[in-house]
Write a protein that binds this DNA or RNA. Structure first.
Lengths: 215, 215
DNA sequence: CTGCGAGTATACCGACCGGTGTGGTTACGT
DNA sequence: ACGTAACCACACCGGTCGGTATACTCGCAG
């Protein structure tokens, strides 16, 4: 029984998928001052590329062209900055994804025999475009790997993001079992794209999704 | 094109799955002195539970009831100790898994219509037994999350482990496409078991594997 | 008896960690 | 003219990081 509420599984249509209304952890982003925005930008890139614990606040402040003082005035702590980094990334990924899905024909749920290029496959297309050949994988999985055993404020953000993706696949497929199957493929694809030895993960994933939808 | 050789994909029978012969990275484990074994044991638990970067060498030496001097005399560096931790874990997981598979009927490859309880499902049973309700997930994925962007000696160990699992699924299914599908489900299951919000990952995975094998 | 590998104990190193404090400079709203 | 929020520069804090050095004890094989 997770600490965060799981009202997400009641999601039934894409229109309800505005994250803030669905999950208190996925609150709207706070406004940022000029230096604050530079700090969050610098921190986001450094955190993603090198890991959360490997990046110190001095480096963040220097990269942003500002000072530690300003960092702590704006964000209060490094932990809060980490949580905000993941929160903003989750928002941006959802916007990126929903914008692509909004252009889809999107009649009924995606099942066997639906028109080619189902919305589920669009998610995997979006994932590939989002990743763009990067080798650092899923920011949420990475952060959880570093912080999972703690009560760090970023942990519930990670769980909320994963729950939202699962709920999205449930909606797109109209079937909880199928949604779970595709969600497992989605998470597996992210891992193999990153730490896998072969380069065929993307095409493997597409074929697997097609098999799952046809089953 | 990964730096490590990928001769693993030529694996065709389970008998060839002795890791040392297959992949130079998965070399046999070096012998350990008494204090060395205590150090590696302590380091393994601490690394897995808290993450590689979050654990200092002082803590490892104290936990093992020895000193930093001995640690550096035996292992040379923290990086080498980390790589050895993952290497030993990979060996133990493979032994655990292959022992369970050796008891299976194991006629031909697992496909649709094969006897209930295929060997592929045995892998997922073994995974669940191996994890045993832990919430810290895959040690290799976690380590890669912390070290992936570097040239740390543990990185090739992680890639070799993932490549070996992929090759194993290819052998068990007798079909590269199907092996890829099941491997994605395997990696996804590990992630969702760990960072997922719901507790149904294990049963979801079993059902998804059955669908994949039947497809 | 000697040499040596293993282990213990402890002190030390420079670098970096997250976080705070002080003081001063802009720009803006009232 | 005044207060205030945002920002910068810089010094400082205790603690921890990975790694090294010195000196000593023990068991064992030649």
């Amino acid at each position: 029984m997770p600490a965060t509420p799981t009202t997400l599984t009641t999601l039934t249509t894409l229109d309800e998928a505005t994250p803030a209304a669905l999950h208190p952890v996925l609150r709207p982003l706070p406004p940022l001052t000029a230096a604050g925005a530079r700090l969050l930008d610098a921190a986001s890139e450094l955190f993603y590329e090198r890991g959360v614990r490997a990046v110190g606040v001095d480096l963040i402040a220097d990269t942003a062209g500002t000072t530690k003082k300003t960092l702590y005035d704006r964000f209060g702590s490094k932990d809060a900055l980490v949580a905000l980094y993941l929160l903003r990334r989750a928002h941006r990924w959802r916007e990126f994804l929903l914008a692509r899905l909004a252009d889809a024909p999107a009649a009924g749920p995606d099942r066997a025999g639906s028109p080619d290029g189902t919305r589920v496959l669009l998610v995997f297309d979006a994932l590939e475009a989002w990743m763009g050949g990067q080798r650092r994988g899923c920011a949420f999985v990475n952060a959880y790997a570093e912080l999972g055993g703690t009560d760090h404020p970023a942990v519930p953000v990670v769980r909320a993001e994963k729950a939202w993706m699962r709920a999205l696949f449930d909606v797109l497929t109209g079937d909880a079992g199928l949604g779970a199957h595709v969600h497992l493929l989605y998470e597996g694809t992210l891992v193999v794209l990153t730490a896998g030895a072969g380069a065929t993960a993307a095409v493997d994933a597409r074929r697997a999704v097609e098999v799952a939808l046809a089953g």
